[in-house]
Amino acid sequence: MSAQIILPRILQVGDGASQAAPDILLSLNCSRPLIITDTIMVELGYVDRLRDALSAQQISADVFADTIPEPTVGSIMAGVERVRAGNYDSIVALGGGSPIDSAKAIAILGKHGGSMRDYKFPRVVNEPGLPIIAIPTTAGTGSEATRFTIITDESNDEKMLCVGLGFMPVAALVDYSLTLSLPARTTADTGIDALTHAMEAYVSRKANAYSDSQALAAMRLIGPHLRRAYHDGGDTEAREAMMLGATLAGVAFSNASVALVHGMSRPIGAFFHVPHGLSNAMLLPSVTAFSVPSAPERYADCARAIGVANLDDSTEAANRKLLAELVTLNDELQVPTPQQFGIDYDQFMSVTEEMAIQAINSGSPGNNPRVPTHDEIVNLYQALWIV
């Protein structure tokens, strides 16, 4: 059976790749971009640097810097109105996963109208929005190379998964030099997010030969370099490996799928405002332990790719090493439990049923090697308070 592979039309990778934005806009016959970013990118001077590069090619760009972490319907609407009121022919998305996800939603709503809920999965959005050039500044979400965006509906605390070719950036400029200023906490959370993308793409029921190749390559880059980037943000070799690994992991899950970790992670983020990579990290050890019996060889491959198991290790031994590594990694990268993050026990337990419903409705748990029941998801949520 064949697999359809969807990628950005242009993928430019390496030190200084972000400076190619003006030439790429001109090659697309675009001359009036809106830069969608956040206030941190403005404060760091990245936005001014980008605007200067555009100005040198006589491209004038306005800036919308009001995106927020874990974007919501409300947070994107000002950007949608900005697009509708302006004469923009393209969007340059600069930042982590949240600005890029926001830009994807704004590009579709700004061009086609409607509400965000109209574009929620299971609808597949293949109609193009404004063309997006994505410039990631974290090594985590892979959003620059995926056909997904996630927007929270504040009315019911639901993270809506939106899927389709319309959300794929036309170009992705993957410049690891933009990650050198990342703090350790962000490096850890986004790095485990990328690792989760690669692992889930590889064990997914929708995996294919192409996604497998990208997922394994991503794990081989992320496994040896995540700790290095966390402990020394100026380690350029580690930063470059993490940036490429995150993009390859994005390519992998965009062309396969994510699974149970992501299905359960989104509701935690929506209800308790836990950053997406961090909620993935909280869940990864226990969900992996739950899933290993249904795909032991696949998880053993993950252990070997990450570098914690040897080729001559048995499947069982490799999986023991993988599960131990995920716990050790969380400890070393100081991933908090829900309680340590500050979530109230009674409040968390009161919404586990609703979170399980939202997780199942997202479709992601159905891609897991071991497809969980509603009650099993509730039990996995509750078990987070035991670890």
Rank of each mutant, 00 (worst) to 15 (best):
Y230L: 01
G96E: 07
G223Q: 09
M77L: 13
L130R: 04
E376W: 08
V174T: 09
S204P: 08
I386M: 14
Q19R: 15
K120G: 02
I192V: 13
S204Y: 06
M1P: 10
A317K: 14
P267Y: 02
L226C: 01
Y202T: 06
A303P: 13
I192D: 06
P296A: 06
T39C: 09
V80C: 09
M243E: 04
A309G: 00
D312S: 14
L195F: 03
A217L: 14
A172F: 05
A300L: 12
I6A: 13
T196Q: 00
V63Y: 09
L11K: 15
L178I: 09
S90Q: 06
E240R: 15
G113Y: 07
N319A: 01
H276F: 13
N319C: 12
A356N: 03
M282H: 08
V125F: 08
R84C: 12
T39V: 10
G277H: 11
L11R: 14
A3V: 13
F341I: 09
I357C: 07
P275E: 12
M168E: 05
V170W: 04
G164V: 04
A198M: 12
I106M: 00
D38N: 11
S291I: 02
I6C: 12
P33D: 08
P267I: 04
N379P: 02
T72Y: 08
Y299T: 09
A303Y: 13
P131V: 04
A201W: 00
Y119L: 13
R32Y: 04
V47G: 00
V274I: 14
V308N: 08
K159C: 05
P365C: 09
A194L: 00
G223I: 02
Y299Q: 03
F167R: 06
T137I: 12
M349N: 13
T187E: 00
L248W: 11
H276A: 13
T288R: 07
